[in-house]
Design a protein around this nucleic acid. Structure first.
Length: 193
DNA sequence: ATATGGATTGCCT
DNA sequence: GGCAATCCATATT
């Protein structure tokens, strides 16, 4: 049963929202194709006390969106090759977001295989850059509102009671390494590692 | 104007 | 496990 999320869902404290997103579905409609996956791994980023966050030094042309209204997409380009997608959280002006790091493929698997140039189910969406490629997410998704967009949105998924959530330090960063702000579904075969 | 390094991936040994 | 690829945001000169 699809549940419509409200703005207030994303305006809550970022770590709490990160946990709630696990088990929900990220869905896109790109080029006439629906693709989706269950969110199995996320990371939180926050202006306050988090030197790894793009928002740490306050709003810049790139990070301004993290200081905007919750529930919007922050897409950035990294290492000259990949896109990563985040969801802005908390009240406007806060500077926080949640990076979607891995999905379990659900709808549009054939389309995802074509976009990823592989037939390996396990490697379609088990990383932040991979899932963007599989779902057709790029810089023109920047600023999309998950509550109203026709191209990208969230659908409800797994019951809260069925979730087994693991916690760890975040991956691939060099600053604020110790913060345990990565969350994942423990038994998922589709984690980035 | 230039320098630095990155919230990654895939290929190599 | 190591490491190159390759664009760009940001800080510094």
């Amino acid at each position: 049963m699809p549940v419509k999320l409200k703005r207030s869902f994303f305006e809550k404290p970022t770590l709490a929202v990160a946990r709630k997103l696990l088990g929900m579905q990220l869905v896109t409609m790109v080029g006439g194709k629906i693709t989706s996956g269950t969110i199995v791994e996320v990371e939180a980023y926050h202006q306050r006390g988090d030197r790894a966050s793009h928002s740490y030094r306050g709003p810049t042309p790139r990070s301004a969106i993290m200081f905007g209204v919750a529930g919007h997409c922050y897409v950035y380009f990294i290492y000259g090759a990949h896109f990563c997608v985040n969801i802005v959280t908390e009240k406007a002006g806060t500077g926080a977001a949640i990076l979607i790091r891995a999905l379990e493929p659900l709808r549009g698997v054939a389309t995802m295989k074509r976009r990823r140039h592989t037939s390996q189910l396990k490697s379609l969406t088990n990383g932040p850059g991979k899932l963007c490629q599989a779902l057709g997410i790029n810089r023109n998704m920047l600023g999309e509102d998950l509550l109203h967009s026709k191209r990208i949105w969230i659908e409800s998924g797994l019951a809260e009671s069925r979730k087994q959530i693991g916690t760890s330090i975040r991956i691939g960063i060099s600053k604020s390494k110790r913060l345990p702000w990565r969350f994942f579904l423990k038994n998922s075969p589709y984690l980035s590692r």
